[in-house]
């Protein structure tokens, strides 16, 4: 594995269009790239024998609306090289206007459910994903709840639940007020 400066040089030379920077915090190296280059960068990290990150631990995303950064969203990939027990993090930055990036399902099948989760919670679109639909929230849910502009208490989903109206006479009122 290359040290920070050489890692940055390597990726700057190999992916001049998508490379942004390499950062280091508490010993964890992070490569920042633009979203459109993510598939090629991860393929290099997986197959190049100098890196050999064979295991994709985790895919998640961060909404940088408040904090600021290269773009609004970053998709975070945690990679692990199981032989050397080394880890690296890749941030793929995507714009709010065009929240699209390539799916890495062709490299690791674990991307199937994890990219679905990022889509469900952030609304980022993974191109080439075989089955991109919501996973945790219901299919008819309209919002992306982990975005920073979505309030903690929701947007009235609870009060908008469909209520069954009783047409047959009943001694109880048709709708009960629980709150």
């Amino acid at each position: 594995m290359l040290p920070k400066r050489e890692l940055a040089d390597f990726f700057r030379n190999k992916f001049p269009d998508s490379f942004l920077e390499v950062t280091d915090f508490r010993g964890m190296l992070t490569i920042h790239i633009r979203g459109r280059g993510v598939l090629e960068v991860l393929r290099t990290l997986k197959t190049d024998p100098r890196f050999a990150f064979n295991f994709l631990c985790d895919i998640t995303a961060v909404d940088h609306l408040v904090q600021g950064g290269h773009a609004r969203f970053s998709v975070v990939y945690h990679l692990l090289n199981q032989h050397g027990a080394r880890r690296i993090v890749v941030h793929a930055w995507v714009d709010e206007e065009n929240p699209k990036l390539d799916s890495v399902y062709s490299l690791w099948k674990t991307a199937d459910w994890q990219e679905r989760e990022v889509f469900d919670l952030y609304g980022l679109l993974f191109q080439g994903h075989p089955n991109l639909r919501r996973i945790l929230n219901p299919d008819d849910f309209k919002f992306y709840p982990l975005r920073k502009d979505y309030p903690l208490q929701g947007r009235g989903e609870r009060s908008d639940f469909p209520v069954v109206e009783r047409s047959i006479g009943s001694k109880w009122p048709a709708t009960q007020d629980f709150e």
Partner: peptide
């Protein structure tokens, strides 16, 4: 996975859930 913006609450907390990934 904790992202901090320097405030008293985390900016983002992500759990790497073994159950979800094992179930996939």
């Amino acid at each position: 996975f904790i992202v901090s913006d320097g405030g008293r609450t985390p900016y983002r907390v992500r759990t790497r859930p073994p159950s979800l990934i094992n179930y996939s």
